[in-house]
Design a protein around this nucleic acid. Sequence first.
DNA 1: TATTGTTATACTCTATAACTATA
DNA 2: TATAGTTATAGAGTATAACAATA
Lengths: 139, 139
Amino acid sequence: MERLSFLLKQTSALVERAIEPGLARAGINGREFGVLTLVDAEGPASQQWLAGRIGVDRTTMVALIDALEEKRLVRRRRDPSDRRAYLLEATSAGRKTLRNARKAVELGEQQALASLTATESATLKQALQRLAQAQPPGT
Amino acid sequence: MERLSFLLKQTSALVERAIEPGLARAGINGREFGVLTLVDAEGPASQQWLAGRIGVDRTTMVALIDALEEKRLVRRRRDPSDRRAYLLEATSAGRKTLRNARKAVELGEQQALASLTATESATLKQALQRLAQAQPPGT
DNA sequence: TATTGTTATACTCTATAACTATA
DNA sequence: TATAGTTATAGAGTATAACAATA
C-alpha cells in the first residue's frame, strides 16, 4: 500500500497537469482561476479577504490581482465605506474567461479521472468534500 | 460542488500539515521521508535514478542526499561497475528513523482522515491508488 | 562523445518589515 | 493606534548551463 500522503500529492499534480493546458488556452493559470472563481462567486471582496480565503499572505495577493486587472478580468473599485480597501469584482470579460476556463477544467478533470469507474470517481469526490467541509475554509 | 482540483490540493496540504510535526520529531521532512523510503525499499540506487522516481532534476537530488548523508541516514558508496555513479543505501540509523517516521505518518494520516468513515477512507485510498497505477512512476 | 555527480546561477513563489493613506 | 494595500527584500525550492571524472 502506497502512502496516502504520496498518493494525494501525486494525484493533485496529475490533475493540475491535465488542467493547465486548457486554462492556458483561456488565458489564465490555476491560481488565477481560483481567485477569479472566488471573486465571481463571493465578490465584491477586499484583497485581504480573498487572501484569507485561499490561504496566502495579503502581500502575495497584490501581484495576483495586478495580473488579473492588467488582463481586464477583474476591476479594483474603492470601498466607499472604507477607502483603504478595494471592492474587487469580475468584469464581463472576466466572467466570460471564467466560463471558458470552467469548461476546460471540467474536461481536464474528466481526462485525469478517466481510469476510474463512475462510482469510484463519485466516491472520491464525496470523500474529498467531506474532508474539506470538516476543515475551516482558507487552510 | 467544489472543484476536484481544489479539493485535491487542499486535502493534500491538510494531510501534509498533519504529518509534518511527527516527521520533524523523527528528524526529517516530507521530501526526505520520500527519498529515504525509496532508498530503503528499492535501493541501492543512483542519485539520478532516485531523481527520476520522485520527479525532480538530478541537480536537486544532490542537496537532498547531502542532508540525509550528513544526518547519517543514507550512505554514498561508489558503484564498482560504474565509478561515476553512487549506490545509495540506508544506514541502520536511517532504517530506524524510517520506522519511527512511518509510525508518525500513519498516525498523522489517520488524524487527517478522522472525519471519514472507515468505508469512505478505504474507498478514497483505493481510488487514489487506481489513479497512481494508471500513471507512469515519477510523474 | 556521452553520462554521473557537482557547482554557479537564475527564476519562481512566498512571507516579513516598513511605508502610505485611511480609519 | 490600527488596518488595507503596497513595496523592498530575503528565503525556500527549483531548473539550466558548464565542469570534472569516468564511461
